[in-house]
Simulated assay, not measured.
Amino acid sequence: MGIFKTNFGGFATRFSPFDENRIAVATSQHYGIVGNGKLHILEIVEGGRMLREITSFMSKDGLYDLAWSEDNENVIVGVSGDGSIKIWDMSRGGPDGRFPVRSYQEHGGEVHSIDWNPINRRTFITGSWDESIKLWDPMAMQGSVQTFKEHRYCVYSTVWSPYHESRFASASGDRTVKIWDTKAPMASNTILAHDHEILSCDWNKYNENILVSASVDKTIKIWDIRSTQRELGVLKGHGYAWVQFTREADVDSDMTVCLWDTLMENALVRRFDHHTEFVVGVDFSLFIPGQMASCAWDETVQIWNI
């Protein structure tokens, strides 16, 4: 297991879509309540047994989420508690390389989620505590391209469909998951998914109609967007849940990382307890089967193979 000490609490971690040995971590000081943020770019070395820093970028407020560009291996975006969205370019050298190449300030509240479009590779979406979702095109040299405002509470999660370039899902504290198409101003489907706030959602990468939602009600629910009157299944056995879907398994986290197989009767496959504080960031490698990464408020990011 590779471990890196971040010194700030971890909020999100993502493997690079271009380099199997590169990973990014978004962190916040004082649990994201007050203080600075820092984005670490790390290199995986010695077969995953070590992590070392390539570079890092500071922000004046905590960073809650990040996304790698799908079009440029050196570009990465972080979203912040002050409502800002910052784009950094790792290829820039010298003192200027420490500063964002672009910064947006349109959201009226903390920006909690960002996802880069994996299909058209030009746009990304952000979800904010101001109850809005915004669509961005960095090449347009302007502000947001489109705003979606239908949720009635904080938007905690926004994620593109891996099959449709204009479709994405969002999860909110208003207890709903919404399915959107960027070609329309209103959501195409609203799922009354849980009885409590929904912290995250994600698509099944191998079935375009299946997604999962995770809530503070301590459940993960599996949905078929073609028929949303009732969930396909419910996974129980954890605390507050964030979720990441990969093939036939998804991961949730409180102070543990749990691996599930949704096709098994006893869905919980394994529980990992290598962190000592809340785990709020998790990702799967795109290149190495079974390789995972997690970050937590214990100020560490860790990678291992399941």
Rank of each mutant, 00 (worst) to 15 (best):
T219V: 05
T256K: 14
G173T: 00
I33S: 08
R167N: 10
R152H: 12
R92E: 09
K38Y: 01
D195G: 14
T27F: 00
G2L: 03
G233W: 12
S103F: 04
N204E: 02
I87F: 11
T190C: 08
D202Q: 07
D224R: 03
V145T: 02
I85V: 12
E110S: 04
G37D: 04
S227L: 11
S161I: 05
H30R: 14
E265M: 11
R121C: 04
Q291A: 06
G290H: 08
V79H: 05
S285T: 12
M186I: 06
E20W: 12
G237I: 05
F245K: 00
A67Q: 09
H238T: 11
V216T: 11
G2Q: 03
E106D: 13
R102I: 02
V145D: 00
C295Y: 14
D273E: 15
S227W: 07
T55Y: 07
C258A: 14
E43F: 06
G78H: 01
G81M: 04
H40R: 07
V159E: 10
F284S: 11
N36R: 14
S215R: 03
K149Q: 15
R22Y: 07
E46F: 12
A267Q: 07
G94M: 07
A267R: 06
V45K: 12
H274I: 12
S16Y: 01
W136D: 09
Y104S: 05
H275V: 06
V177H: 11
G233D: 15
R152Y: 10
E131Q: 10
E197K: 06
G143T: 02
W297E: 12
S91D: 13
R230L: 15
I3W: 08
T182C: 02
E265A: 11
L211Q: 00
A26H: 07
V77D: 03
E231W: 08
E208N: 05
I33C: 08
T219L: 05
N21P: 11
N189E: 10
D261E: 11
K218E: 15
Y156H: 13
A26I: 03
A171V: 00
A241R: 04
I33P: 05
N7P: 00
R270W: 03
S172C: 06
S161M: 03
M264W: 01
Q105V: 03
A140E: 14
D254H: 09
I288A: 09
V212C: 06
I114Y: 05
I133Y: 08
S157F: 08
D195Q: 14
L232S: 11
T147A: 11
K178F: 10
A184H: 04
P138T: 10
I225Y: 14
G10T: 00
D61C: 10
F4A: 01
L51M: 06
A193H: 12
V159P: 01
E110D: 09
V177R: 08
E70S: 13
W68S: 00
I191Y: 08
D283Y: 02
Y206M: 14
V257Q: 13
I114Q: 05
